[in-house]
């Protein structure tokens, strides 16, 4: 083996070691994110008034992601962001989704990319090593909100995830008797869709995922239509919050929602177990809570 090949071999071996280290760290990050998305799944069976309590169990885990961000920024050699980003991009999209979903549930607004970077402890100086790309942002917000950043691509992706998730939430909120949630979700997702229409998308993954938005909007519109048709919606006071802790939706008490009331009662019972403290226990606790919750939402 000549010197040329030997040098290349040595270099590739060093790179392989870097890859292993990054992979290990990304795995830890993924564990945290999965525990959060698992817990956040419960929003579909949680009354709006109980959502803040649910969110408070997720928030500490989200902040714990900061240490992983810092370690990844250390591990990635300077100017090699694009060399390694595939290793974490999917998980970072989920993290963006989680952060934007929490933001929407709390305030009904879209979390901007700089804000997400702050939440995840990603510093501006890491732009050559570890950051959220605009595409990732847009993919994640498919579920709920939008993050603004100089890196448009990541952002877009996260936002699409947010919209997908919200269409599901609109249906489930009606099942739980929260009849005005779909209206707020509808207004918010329409704004997001209007934002997406400003982008000139190529025929790539982002375009294909963008195409899915219209089905989500349609689903939400149908929910809004059904609720309106049956006059179930109270006049909308503030379109900002989907889940304001101080203003529990008033529709639960109406006579037309007897089923929803009983559903709500069982759900509350299921949710009355003590709040989870240790984030590490979230995954296990969630599993034990699942059967109880499955019954009312079924």
């Amino acid at each position: 083996m000549d010197l040329n090949i030997a040098e290349i071999h040595a270099h590739l071996e060093r790179e392989a070691q870097v890859r292993e280290k990054i992979k290990d760290e990304v795995l830890e990050l993924e564990k945290k994110i999965r525990s959060m998305t698992g817990t956040l799944n419960k929003i579909h069976s949680t009354l709006p008034k109980d959502v803040p309590a649910l969110l408070s169990t997720v928030r500490p885990t989200l902040l714990m992601c900061r240490s992983h961000s810092a370690r990844l920024a250390e591990l990635v050699p300077p100017n090699q962001f694009w060399r390694w980003k595939e290793l974490w991009s999917k998980h970072l999209q989920s993290a963006v989704f989680v952060a934007t979903l929490i933001q929407f549930l709390e305030s009904g607004t879209l979390l901007s990319l700089p804000d997400i970077n702050q939440t995840l402890g990603i510093q501006a100086g890491w732009a050559d090593r570890f950051y959220i790309q605009i595409e990732d942002y847009l993919h994640g917000c498919r579920y709920f909100t939008l993050i603004s950043s100089p890196y448009t691509d990541y952002t877009c992706v996260a936002v699409i995830s947010l919209i997908n998730e919200l269409s599901r939430l609109a249906v489930n909120m009606v099942t739980l008797g929260s009849y005005d949630a779909p209206f707020r979700i509808s207004a918010f997702t329409k704004d997001l869709a209007a934002g997406f229409s400003l982008l000139n998308l190529k025929n790539d993954l982002l375009r294909r995922r963008f195409d899915s938005i219209k089905y989500d909007l349609k689903k939400i519109e149908e929910v809004v239509y059904d609720v309106s048709l049956r006059n179930l919606n109270a006049p909308i006071q503030a379109p900002a919050l989907a889940t304001s802790p101080t203003q529990p939706p008033t529709c639960y008490g109406t006579s037309s929602s007897r089923t929803a009331q009983s559903l709500a009662a069982t759900t509350e019972a299921a949710d009355s177990r003590p709040p989870l403290e240790a984030p590490e226990l979230l995954g296990a606790a969630e599993q034990s809570g699942e059967p109880q919750q499955a019954a009312p939402s079924a």
């Binding site: 939008l146 448009t152 704004d191 209007a194 400003l198 982008l199």
Partner: peptide, 10 residues
């Protein structure tokens, strides 16, 4: 707010 963010992305 949302439209501004998206114009930037565009």
């Amino acid at each position: 707010h949302i439209l501004t963010i998206f114009k930037d992305f565009s």
